[in-house]
Design a protein around this nucleic acid. Structure first.
Lengths: 359, 359
DNA sequence: TTGAAAGCGCTAACAT
DNA sequence: ATGTTAGCGCTTTCAA
């Protein structure tokens, strides 16, 4: 039965105009060439070799090689209702959402674990107000979702509600468990305990009455936990804690905030950065003001990213197991897909003190 | 016609045992609920509203909302033969392949551009010898590929040959054009010119007879270009250039290499890092040896990652437009998909000198 | 203004 | 040991 050109759908006509785009061979082409049925080809591709003659297998493999056949994951997914793909949504206002070493290592841990098991990671950076309209939410294309959220507690709850309504399992990183999210798992590190450890260490090393912490304008759950950890220890010991907000993705903004703070008050006893980048930047400002670290003031960061140890002095900080969190999240979600439910609602990894020489 | 349970495929049976996994509503469910055909639902979903009654549209939208229907991208892709997904393969030996700020910014630029246009980015970190067996290569699941390659020129050529044979368009980042790759585009920055600029700047600022450059064990095309740029200028002015190899992903390895170098010879006039991390780490080692920068020796890096400016002294380096490369790569590949061919074989972005105070 | 129907590439139960 | 067949969810042409 010959098709008249007009009967062809517009889409196919368009792609036909793309000369380079020779249509890739399908399982039918392989079957025809090998002189077998598509079912047989499928079995060879999927290594279901029970009771298949060696010669047939070889003929099929030859045909696959000759034609350069690559099975279409789309066809398979439609049939099996599995996509072997996990979506990762990083909800962040900054276009350089991937610039933070924490996120970066998290994603690396995720992909490495997933890749090794034949799963792909579909990455999406999403602006906070765009989550509802994002492809990941609007359309169904992954087996499960991973998210790192930002914004106020209220915002985050609304995102979690939105995700829950999708009816897809998801893992959130660095967020507190939410009971109403039934098919979700909360993977995080113990930021609070990490901050408590740092705070105690600081008070061991030096007498302190005043501390200041530089944090981001955008609220992140992990940062709130860190603040709360510091505050608990400091309150107990009657140490005051100022909070200074800045755009932590911009060194200029951190510098400006530090300069402004130093202009308006005498140096405190301790400067705390919400992460290492902030702490190191503040340390440079202190140097320019001839304020010695740790002589005059102490400085500490958070995350222990690789080069924090090579600052001068080496930064006192806490090691965030970001890569491990990513791996764990991947493992947890693959297990969920197998078992049909999350075995635990929450996983918490420890944060260890890294004693530098800046406190 | 009733199905006996036994007739159900194993896969469906298995997923049935996953109680939480209620099968998501399909376009048929929506059609049934709205009392229209699937064709009509499809038109509503895709906003093809020509000649559709307002009431029908509303009924359909209501049904969509009531059921929480999300169109399946798999079904659509199978029909349209488009996946709206770009694969990104980062061929790197290190499991923390995403840790490098350059790569990180590249990927951020890619996803941001793609996300905004409804495309997803499927991320895969791949070990050099595993490319041939990776899902991205073995199976067909994306419209096009992006790659950053590593290894010797010969290795890279073999990867490019492999990718060419897939019959899929691809973009490589930071690699030299290869004529035999017909349906490929080479997007890179002018590393060579960047190095030439740095070398000239160094020789303007100080008399130098000996330079040493710390580079990675694994060969990267961009690094080769940088070496070649430095060498050209230095050869011309009779400045010697030693190359020292180390594992640039490990600060311990950089430190060890620097210590070993200093133990075996007098300090040279200039230390060059293949990137900022290497340069900053070397600078710390110099400090510990009481070798002043830039008093005794000059130091320069490459990439100008955000915190290189806050080292002490601020690092002299060259700004790599990694984020822009990612955006450009995305734009180039989407255009290829539309036009049917790459309009240019190569795109080169400039690398600008960042004069710090370390030279 | 709407619907019927074909078919995208693949898998797996069942028949042969 | 291999083949037949139905159908996964969707889009689009053409008919009504």
């Amino acid at each position: 039965m010959a098709f008249s050109p007009d009967r062809q759908p517009a889409l196919l006509r368009r792609s036909e105009s793309q000369r380079q785009m020779a249509k890739p061979p399908t399982i039918h082409a392989v079957a025809a060439r090998a002189g077998v049925s598509t079912a047989t080809v499928s079995k060879v591709v999927n290594r279901i070799n029970v009771g298949m003659s060696e010669t047939t297998r070889q003929r099929v493999e030859e045909a696959i090689r000759d034609l350069g056949y690559r099975p279409s994951r789309v066809g398979r997914s439609l049939r099996t209702l599995r996509r072997s793909t996990i979506g990762m949504a990083i909800v962040d206002a900054s276009p350089s959402f991937l610039a933070d070493p924490f996120t970066t290592n998290l994603v690396a841990g995720l992909t490495n674990h997933l890749s090794a098991r034949g799963f792909g990671l579909l990455l999406h950076g999403i602006k906070p107000h765009e989550l509802r309209d994002s492809v990941l939410v609007r359309e169904s294309e992954v087996d499960a979702l991973c998210v790192t959220l930002s914004g106020s507690r209220r915002d985050r709850l609304s995102y979690i509600k939105l995700l829950t309504e999708l009816g897809q399992p998801f893992v959130t990183f660095q967020d507190q468990p939410v009971a109403s999210a039934k098919d979700a798992c909360f993977v995080r590190q113990d930021d609070r305990a990490g901050a408590v450890g740092l705070a105690r260490y600081i008070l061991e090393k030096r007498r302190a009455k005043r501390a200041v912490m530089f944090i981001s304008e955008l609220s992140w759950p992990a940062i709130e936990q860190r603040v709360s950890g510091f505050r608990d220890v400091f309150d107990d010991k009657r140490v005051s804690l100022d909070l200074v907000r800045c755009d932590e993705t911009s060194s200029a903004s951190i510098v400006a905030a530090a300069e402004a703070y130093l202009a308006r008050t005498a140096p405190p006893d301790v400067f705390i950065g919400q992460n290492d980048q902030v702490a190191l930047t503040v340390m440079q400002v202190l140097k320019r003001h001839n304020i010695r670290v740790p002589g005059d003031v102490g400085v500490c960061g958070f995350n222990a990213f690789p080069f924090s140890g090579f600052a001068d002095p080496p930064l006192t900080t806490a090691r965030s197991p970001a890569y491990e969190l990513g791996q764990l999240g991947a493992a947890v979600i693959l297990d969920r897909l197998e078992a049909g439910h999350f075995r635990k609602r929450e996983h918490v990894l420890a944060v260890d003190l890294v004693a530098g020489a800046s406190v």
